[in-house]
Amino acid sequence: MTLLKAACRWVALLFLAGLLLISLTLLLFRYINPPTTAFILTWQIENRTGVEQEWVPLEDISPWMPLAVIASEDQRFLEHWGLDLDAIATAVDAFREGDSLRGASTITQQTAKNLFLWSGRSYFRKGLEAALALGLEGLWSKRRIMEVYLNVAEFGPGIYGVEAASRAHFGIKASQLTAEQAARLAAVLPNPRVYNAAAPSDYIWRRVSWIRAQMGQLGGRDLVRRFY
Rank of each mutant, 00 (worst) to 15 (best):
V11S: 08
A12S: 15
L13F: 13
L13T: 04
L13Q: 14
L14T: 10
A17R: 04
L20I: 13
I22S: 01
T25F: 06
L26F: 10
L28G: 01
L28N: 03
L28S: 09
F29G: 01
Y31N: 09
I32A: 13
T37I: 07
T42P: 01
Q44N: 07
E46M: 13
N47I: 06
T49C: 07
V51Q: 06
E52K: 09
L58N: 00
E59I: 08
D60P: 02
S62L: 01
S62A: 07
S62G: 11
M65V: 01
M65E: 01
I70T: 03
A71I: 02
S72Q: 05
E73Y: 11
E73I: 09
Q75C: 09
R76V: 13
R76P: 06
D84Q: 09
D84C: 09
D86M: 10
A87S: 14
I88V: 15
A89N: 12
A89S: 13
A94S: 12
D99C: 04
L101A: 09
L101F: 15
G103A: 11
I107E: 05
T111C: 11
T111E: 07
A112R: 01
A112K: 02
K113Q: 04
K113W: 09
L115R: 03
L117R: 05
G120M: 04
R121D: 12
F124Y: 12
R125V: 00
R125S: 10
E129I: 04
A130L: 13
A130E: 08
A131Q: 08
L132C: 12
L134C: 07
G138I: 10
W140E: 03
K142I: 12
K142S: 09
R144F: 11
I145G: 02
E147I: 04
V148N: 01
L150Q: 00
L150S: 04
N151F: 03
